[in-house]
């Protein structure tokens, strides 16, 4: 395959809030890396401010959030708000975890681009990213 001039999409993947359940975030991080994305995993217990800091420092186009503690309605929108405050709303936020259907609609209204729930095939996440960033072909 030929190399392209377009730089690969950079994604900051983060665990927000207090829970330490990192199985999902690690599996997704690996799959995105395998799919050709540049993945930066922040580690555990990130505040919305820390996540946005990392995204700006890393010049990321995407933030992927994972949460399993039920605090998604507070913390996911808090990341979006922080991006607004820092005038970085071009960064796309998506998330995953134990998130009931009703909450997904609300989160989308509040600026989260997509939510992936348990059982989502990894390919679906990759396909979604390819749709959002068609210009940056992967390797």
């Amino acid at each position: 395959m030929s190399a392209t001039a377009v730089r690969p999409v950079r994604i900051v993947v983060a665990k927000v809030g207090l829970d330490g359940h990192d199985r999902g975030v690690k599996v997704v991080a690996r799959a995105l890396r395998d799919a050709g994305y540049e993945v930066i995993y922040t580690g555990l217990r990130q505040t919305p401010e820390m996540v946005v800091d990392a995204a700006l420092q890393e010049d990321a186009q995407v933030i992927g959030l994972s949460i399993h503690s039920g605090a998604h309605m507070t913390l996911f929108p808090a990341v979006v708000e922080e991006l607004k405050r820092r005038q970085a709303t071009d960064i796309v936020v998506f998330g995953g975890g134990i998130i009931p259907d009703d909450d997904i609609a609300t989160l989308k209204k509040r600026g989260v681009a997509e939510i992936f729930t348990p059982g989502t095939p990894l390919q679906e996440i990759v396909d979604w990213l390819r749709m959002r960033f068609p210009e940056s072909t992967q390797k």
């Binding site: 809030g17 207090l18 829970d19 217990r45 505040t47 399993h68 503690s69 039920g70 605090a71 998604h72 309605m73 507070t74 913390l75 808090a78």
Partner: peptide, 10 residues
């Protein structure tokens, strides 16, 4: 401050 959104949830 870091308890916000988490209290009583899980």
């Amino acid at each position: 401050p870091t308890s916000r959104g988490e209290v009583g949830h899980c």
